[in-house]
């Protein structure tokens, strides 16, 4: 209970380190989410509109990847961008960009899957309506994006929720470097390992608040439809 008090004190005292950590977390997660959205939304749409052999298999694989453990993603990307790995020359290991890369890999299946399943819930009459009114491929795509905007937005927010709360990727790829790649989650892991529970708790409170906010937004959006 005492640590709760200290936690709130830390949040409201404007502690520079806490602020930087929260900011780094948000910044990295927003970039990751943005990049993933640019890749995942078109992928989900393509998947929805095209039929090809083994499509069901691919969808099953993507759905299975939703449960991808963060440390496995971390390990995979680590072996890619490590100096002795194939992408070593990029020299991004232990930088925010490494975390972004890992988080993109982590959240890509989530966005593809949610966009895909969201679009498949769009009423069949919708496409017939577009076609009968004379819409061509590009128009159909644009109209679908607009019609499914809530689905897509909630997919994006779900991706954001996943990356802001993950610790495996940030820890392995970012290295938990103070003032640089230390995020809320890696910091919580570190502080609690040091027994600094109030600092950990302060960050935990912020993290939970952000998670609740994001979920609240998703909920309102879905309800609004």
């Amino acid at each position: 209970m005492e640590s709760f008090g200290r936690a709130f004190q830390l949040i409201f005292s404007g502690n520079r380190e806490v602020f930087t950590i929260v900011f780094t977390s948000l910044y990295i997660s927003i970039i990751s989410t943005g990049v993933t959205a640019c890749l995942g939304i078109p992928a989900g749409i393509l998947l929805h509109f095209n039929t090809f052999p083994f499509k069901r298999g691919l969808v099953a694989v993507i759905n299975a990847l939703l449960a991808l453990p963060t440390v496995v993603v971390g390990l995979l990307v680590f072996s890619l961008i490590s100096r002795s790995g194939p992408l070593g020359s990029l020299n991004i290991l232990f930088s925010p960009w490494a975390i972004v890369m890992g988080q993109v890999v982590l959240s890509f299946p989530i966005m593809v899957s949610l966009v895909y399943s969201g679009l498949s819930k769009v009423d069949g009459r919708f496409y017939e309506t577009l076609v009968t009114l004379g819409a061509k491929g590009r128009n159909v795509l644009a109209a679908t994006l607009i019609e499914a905007r809530f689905v897509i937005l909630s997919a994006v927010l779900a991706g954001f929720g996943r990356v802001i709360g993950e610790v495996g990727v940030s820890m392995m790829l970012g290295g938990n470097i103070r003032w640089y790649t230390r995020t809320m989650t890696t910091s919580i892991a570190l502080e609690s390992s040091k027994g600094e529970f109030s600092q950990a708790l302060a960050l935990g409170v912020i993290l939970v608040t952000i998670a609740l906010l994001v979920n609240g937004i998703i909920h309102t959006l879905v309800k609004e439809r």
């Binding site: 490590s82 100096r83 290991l93 232990f94 470097i177």
Partner: peptide, 20 residues
């Protein structure tokens, strides 16, 4: 200095890979 705090074994491994 970017500090990556791991165990000695892992730290040496990062060095051996050229990641630090």
């Amino acid at each position: 200095v970017d500090v990556i705090a791991v165990g000695t074994g892992a730290a040496l491994e990062l060095g051996a890979k050229g990641d630090v």
